[in-house]
């Protein structure tokens, strides 16, 4: 495993990668590429929240897409009923998703361990059903349309290149936020819970409250990513927040690895672009996702990036040993 001597060292590679990604529009990429990159970026924002929950606290939410959906529907309803635009929706959606996360989290933590995962899954499904049966208000199964433009200082951000930069900015903010949480005393508390719940409780840490707190924090990220999703797609429907998107998010966080700051970024990009690179149709790519998820869980439980790092460390060790034994042979000769 990589040990971080200084917390800043963890942040710098992420910022460098994001800076490089922000330069992509200069190479005049195709619209298809940009759309893929934008949806990857929107997922990555939610992933940073999920990585705080899963990577630090060790509890996984399998209904996270539902929280993204809360954000997206908040944005759509605010725009329709109150004429509140993009910037107004961001804080409201964050708060709404946090409230829903609290509503799910407080009762769910009464049940322990793996039941919690089932609960999040069930709540996610329940929310989809509620949205589908919401009638006129939630637009039922067809969902809602969005018309409001996104502007900043009078500049329209709707063209794909600009929206891409906006998403990159939000990814940067969420990466920094998640880094700040991980390196705060709060993050240490969460890790203590992950490593040994009983010991943490014995040390006077309120385990339940911190778990709910982590879930709420991850909900805020999900809510914000939902707003971006709604304004990017311009149309949202319950199906987008059902069980498969939740599995998809979990797959991304699993593949990238939740404990490293680079993990969500890598997972989001890999999972979004892999089908495009391999030229797979949606059915095949979903099979590939499923197989990847199983393979990652079985072989690389810490995620791909950590797996590569471990593999590299092992290779270095082996080559050093080989060199050492070679040297020894030289010496005896």
């Amino acid at each position: 495993m990589i040990k971080f001597a200084s917390p800043l060292r963890a942040l710098i590679p992420v910022l460098v990668v994001l800076l490089l990604l922000a330069l992509v529009p200069l190479m005049s990429p195709s619209n298809r590429f940009l759309s893929l990159a934008i949806s990857a970026g929107i997922n990555i924002i939610a992933l940073y929240g999920l990585s705080v929950l899963f990577g630090q606290t060790g509890i996984l939410s399998m209904g996270h897409a539902a929280l993204v959906g809360v954000g997206a529907y908040t944005a759509a309803l605010l725009a329709r009923d109150f004429d509140i635009g993009f910037w107004g929706s961001i804080p409201v959606a964050g708060v709404m998703a946090a409230i829903v996360a609290a509503v799910i989290g407080i009762p769910s933590l009464r049940v322990s361990g793996h039941h919690f995962v089932i609960m999040t899954f069930a709540f996610g499904q329940l929310l989809t059903i509620i949205l589908t049966n919401g009638g006129e208000y939630t637009g039922a199964a067809t969902g809602l349309d969005m018309q409001q433009p996104v502007t900043m200082f009078g500049i329209a951000l709707d063209p794909l290149e600009r929206f891409y930069l906006l998403v990159i900015a939000f990814v940067t903010i969420s990466a920094v936020a998640s880094w700040a949480i991980i390196n705060s005393s709060y993050g240490r508390t969460l890790r203590a819970i992950r490593e040994n719940e009983k010991l943490a409780a014995a040390l006077g840490i309120n385990v339940g409250r911190h778990k709910i707190g982590a879930f709420i924090v991850s909900g805020v990220f999900a809510g914000v990513s939902g707003v971006l999703l709604a304004y990017f797609l311009r149309h949202i429907s319950p199906g987008q927040f059902a069980s498969f998107p939740s599995i998809y998010l979990a797959l991304m966080v699993m593949i990238g690895g939740a404990r490293l700051l680079l993990g969500p970024l890598a997972g989001g990009i890999l999972v979004s672009f892999l089908p495009e690179v391999l030229n797979l149709d949606p059915v095949q790519s979903r099979i590939l996702y499923g197989v990847c998820l199983i393979a990652v869980i079985l072989f690389l439980p810490n995620g791909l990036i950590a797996g590569i790092a471990d593999g590299w460390a092992w290779l270095v060790k082996v080559s050093k040993r080989a060199q050492a034994s070679g040297d020894a042979r030289e010496a005896t000769r």
């Binding site: 996984l60 399998m62 361990g113 793996h114 995962v117 089932i118 498969f244 599995i247 979990a250 797959l251 699993m254 059915v283 095949q284 979903r286 099979i287 996702y289 499923g290 197989v291 990847c292 998820l293 199983i294 869980i297 079985l298 439980p301």
Partner: peptide
């Protein structure tokens, strides 16, 4: 059998299996 020690991993694996089995049938 490799997930017996960590049931949550088994659960996630089974979610992967859902996707795989569904889409193999669709394929």
């Amino acid at each position: 059998r490799f997930t017996l020690e960590r049931p949550t991993n088994g659960f996630i694996v089974s979610l992967g299996l859902i996707v795989v089995l569904q889409h193999i049938v669709i394929l």
